[in-house]
């Protein structure tokens, strides 16, 4: 199957932190591009001697008619992020997609826990929009862990969402919180274990976990070994 290559223009760049930014990618008018919350695009990275592709999760929601938002960290020596951090508004990017199977297609009908670390919140954000698309009393909980407040991307938005929807709660977690922090502290693992493994014997919950490195695999193992059905524990490890 021949892939369709899309060419988008960088419409806007938002700096979340010195080494974290969002790129907003505008496709030409009348381009039909659809995706499922959680999916990523595969961006072409032209290097002097080769072409590579690097995946970037879409942090915006399908159907909102705005540009596609991707969030990235500057990874020293990382070909993709160094190339993308050197782009400016008006530059064009080529990509294929969408790809990926870590998705949420419809509002869940059992209690659902979303957990992510830092920029791995990207797939969770459109998932939450989809999960809240219909009025529901099914509890939805977001645990977002980070090292610093600045890494808690979209915190204002999630707080506003929690005020608006009685069935949604937002639980930011800082590893080493500053004075005056009213959220949780520690690791996402500690809180998930305390609340949903040791906290009760219920196993009728679903989990969507995303992170960089092995932590997400440890979390998957914790939950599956604790008796949650394999398919109720969805995850993506970057």
């Amino acid at each position: 199957m021949e892939r369709i290559t899309y060419t988008a223009t960088i419409e806007r760049i938002v700096e979340h932190d010195v080494d974290t930014r969002s790129l907003f990618l505008r496709l030409p008018a009348k381009t039909a591009f659809t995706f499922t919350p959680g999916q990523f695009i595969s961006v072409a990275i032209p290097l002097p001697n080769e072409n590579r592709v690097r995946p970037y999760t879409i942090a915006s929601s399908p159907g909102d008619d705005g540009p596609l938002e991707i969030v990235l960290d500057l990874v020293p020596g990382g070909a993709g992020s160094e190339y993308l951090f050197a782009r400016t508004v008006g530059d064009r990017l080529n990509f294929t997609g969408p790809f990926g199977l870590f998705t949420l297609e419809r509002p869940p009908d059992i209690e659902t826990i979303f957990a992510a670390e830092a920029t791995a919140i990207a797939p969770i954000r459109p998932m939450l929009h989809r999960a809240l698309a219909q009025p529901s009393t099914v509890p939805l909980k977001l645990f977002h862990a980070a090292r610093t407040r600045k890494e808690l991307l979209y915190a204002d938005e999630f707080q506003a969402t929690a005020r608006r929807y009685a069935n949604f709660s937002y639980e930011p977690i800082l590893a080493q919180p500053p004075a005056g922090w009213s959220g949780r502290s520690g690791t996402v693992m500690e809180h998930i274990r305390a609340l949903f493994v040791d906290g009760d014997a219920r196993r009728d919950r679903a989990f969507y976990l995303c992170g960089v490195g092995n932590g997400v695999i440890e979390l998957r193992d914790l939950l599956r070994k604790a008796g949650y059905p394999r398919r109720a524990v969805q995850y993506e490890r970057w």
């Binding site: 595969s42 592709v53 995946p55 695999i217 490890r237």
Partner: peptide, 28 residues
């Protein structure tokens, strides 16, 4: 498409010979 990170299935191949000579698949 995912850059070789085990996050999609675009590099799916079917092994016709030597399956047992490959590293064992992890749960992921």
């Amino acid at each position: 498409a995912c850059g070789g990170n085990c996050a999609c299935t675009t590099c799916h191949v079917i092994v016709k010979q030597g399956f047992d000579k490959l590293s064992e698949a992890e749960e992921r």
